[in-house]
Design a binder for these strands. Structure first.
Length: 617
DNA sequence: ACCTGTACGTA
DNA sequence: CGTACGTACAGGTT
């Protein structure tokens, strides 16, 4: 397949810039202008075009059988697709490729990657391009800009040559799908619904504010809210910050002392606390506003980071994080995401994928078997806890069982377990004392002793990894000093992993890692944030990484026949025409009911639905 | 303009 | 020793 490497240079100024706005808003803005574009076909010489009709220049090549390669292809690809209607057979992206291979150690910029691979130096943009329209460049300036752009194209192509040999083809297909979510948007936004929703939220918030005697600032500011509580004779609750160890206000909706105040005998206190909790979350409002703005420009391009988490999960991008849309309380924003005309949105989510994977990877065979027989494992564990048969009808008891299966598999302790039950979910909250919590945790660990053993195996792996050793966890996952090898060949990497007096720690954030390395090279002292790591957490990381692989393989399979609109960790969302919708749903569920090749004995299951909008699936 | 801590939404 | 994210906001520093 021909590889065409492309890089756009576009107009920007102080305010109209990618630093200040989203990629979607930037490209759709009336100020958008292509200054020039560099194009390289395979390893041929890079061509530069800076005329008034990039479309005709670009369209001289047939991309329908070619791959287009860029660094940050969401940007250049969106220009190609939205402005010129160019949609290649395959999108390639060196930014996406760098993430799984280098974790946080190199950084995603073309400059850093080019230096790392000794490909040459990325040029400084010598032209004073800010605020300058294409026609305002002198010939000499434009020539310098061309050299800069051509160098970037050549570096991107050279970088791809380095990365491609380490990269599974299946994963390239997933990168292509991820780019297409942005470059070929299909979700439509329901502007009237969003506007009504925004109006409703604003009204509700105003009513809340009107019910108390203080203003919005007094609710939003911790210190001012404390004063407001004191003025009603309440001692503001405090707690010790887990992060800093310092005393801080306990004003979160998960702080029991705070929610207790909702039942305070003084109704003014109830109203004040209720107003604070209702005002503090702004996510509905800000998100709705953002969607309204996008809806005025067009359909919804979806930006996901292909390998956002170090476990391989996707993460959200371009300011709209589609992976944390409210769903429990209010479904309105999801309902505003509509299928195109004469089409349906089909959503399918993998059932208890992480619980199944932890049982499978640890060899907890009785639990795997229970999933295989489609038994209700939450009710079954609850039956053990309560010493009597629990069914789906026993909502509270089953909730306890569910919390055990989902939480206790990664080493959660009794106190946190007790609190998790108390905080509750979906209107169910369960109060137990610490002794009872300890009994349940012990029971879980006795019954699922293979999972406990797996934590220990992961702990041994950490020890070996810090000592430069290698080995395997249950013959399933090899590891060495560079990390734990996953079934797709990628690694879970723990940068700068080291043993401490009571465990292990690593550097999880890129800038910290590079500060740490620089400090080591120069002998300078450094103070960076270390992230703790231990057997139970490695177990969770492995399970999350395996689940991410399962869903990416499923995405690639589904994508052969249908348009994958986006994904949310264990859920795949497809758009298909009305006539195809039932077929698509059947195919989607079939794919998501098929175990991966590397775990043919893993029982997987899924649940699906279709509707005109995402919220009703 | 940027940084840190906290909170809160999802999985 | 549940974990993985991204964003908004407050309150501080540069």
């Amino acid at each position: 397949m021909d590889v065409v490497t492309i890089d756009f240079e576009t107009y920007y100024d102080k305010d109209y810039s990618l630093k200040k706005m989203t990629t979607e808003a930037y490209i759709r803005n009336p100020l958008f202008e292509v200054i020039g574009v560099g194009v390289k076909i395979n390893d041929g010489p890079t061509d530069w075009y800076s005329g008034s009709n990039p479309k005709s220049f670009l369209s001289s090549f047939d991309y329908s059988k070619a791959a287009i390669l860029c660094h940050n292809t969401a940007f250049d690809g969106a220009i190609l697709s939205w402005k010129y209607g160019i949609k290649p057979r395959l999108w390639l992206d060196t930014l996406s490729m760098a993430r799984p291979l280098h974790s946080v150690t190199v950084g995603g910029s073309l400059a850093a990657l080019a230096t790392y691979y000794n490909l040459g130096k990325k040029g400084d943009e010598v032209v004073a391009a800010q605020g300058k329209r294409r026609e305002e460049f002198t010939d000499e300036e434009m020539e310098r800009y061309a050299r800069y752009c051509i160098n970037d194209v050549d570096l991107t192509y050279a970088l791809f040559q380095k990365l491609k040999n380490k990269f599974p083809v299946k994963e390239l297909v997933v990168i292509d799908q991820t780019i297409r979510m942005f470059t070929e948007p299909c979700i439509q936004l329901d502007t009237p619904l969003l506007e009504k929703h925004l109006n409703d939220i604003s009204t509700r918030k105003q009513e809340l504010l009107a019910s108390v005697s203080v203003d919005r600032n007094s609710l939003m500011s911790n210190d001012m809210f404390a004063v407001a509580l004191q003025s009603l004779g309440v001692v503001p609750p405090t707690k010790i910050s887990p992060r800093t160890g310092q005393e801080t206000w306990a004003f979160a909706k998960t702080d029991k002392a705070m929610t207790d105040l909702l039942n305070h005998p003084d109704e003014r206190v109830q109203a004040l606390v209720s107003a604070r909790l209702g005002t503090k979350s702004t996510i509905e409002e800000t998100r709705t506003k953002a969607f309204i703005e996008i809806s005025q420009r067009g359909s919804l391009p979806i930006m996901l980071n292909y390998y956002g988490a170090h476990t391989g999960r996707f993460s959200g991008g371009d300011k709209i994080n589609l992976q944390n849309l409210p769903s429990r309380g209010n479904n309105k924003i999801r309902q505003a995401l509509k299928a195109p005309q004469y089409s349906k949105i089909i959503a399918c989510d993998s059932a208890q994928i992480e619980a199944r994977l932890v049982a499978w990877v640890a060899g907890q065979e009785d639990l795997v078997q229970a999933f295989r027989e489609k038994r209700d494992v939450y009710s079954e564990f609850a039956s053990e806890v309560y010493g009597r048969t629990i069914t789906k009808a026993d909502k509270i008891e089953r909730f306890v069982g569910k919390t055990c299966v989902l939480g206790l598999g990664y080493g959660m302790g009794a106190e946190k377990f007790r609190r998790t039950l108390e905080i509750g979910q979906a209107g169910i909250s369960v109060k137990i004392d610490l002794n009872e919590a300890e009994r349940i945790v012990r029971l879980y660990r006795q019954k699922n002793w293979k999972i406990v053993e797996f934590w220990n195996l992961c702990g041994y792996a950490l020890t070996a990894m810090t000592q430069g050793g290698s080995g395997s966890i249950r013959g399933i996952l090899k590891y060495d000093a560079d990390g734990i090898v996953l079934p797709n060949g990628f690694r879970i990497q723990y940068a700068a992993l080291r043993a401490t007096s009571n465990g292990f720690e690593y550097v999880s954030e890129g800038r910290s890692y590079r500060n740490y390395i620089n400090a080591k090279l120069t002998g300078q002292p450094h103070s960076i944030a270390w992230t703790k790591i231990y057997g139970g957490k490695v177990t969770e990381n492995i399970v999350q990484a395996l689940a991410a692989i399962v869903i990416r393989e499923q995405m690639a399979a589904v994508g052969k026949k249908y348009k994958v609109a986006f994904q949310v960790h264990d859920e795949i969302i497809v758009v298909a025409g009305n006539a195809d919708a039932d077929h698509a749903e059947r195919y989607l569920t079939e794919v998501m009911s098929t175990p991966p090749q590397w775990a043919p004995d893993l029982p997987v299951a899924c649940e699906s639905g279709q509707a005109d909008n995402y919220g009703d699936t």
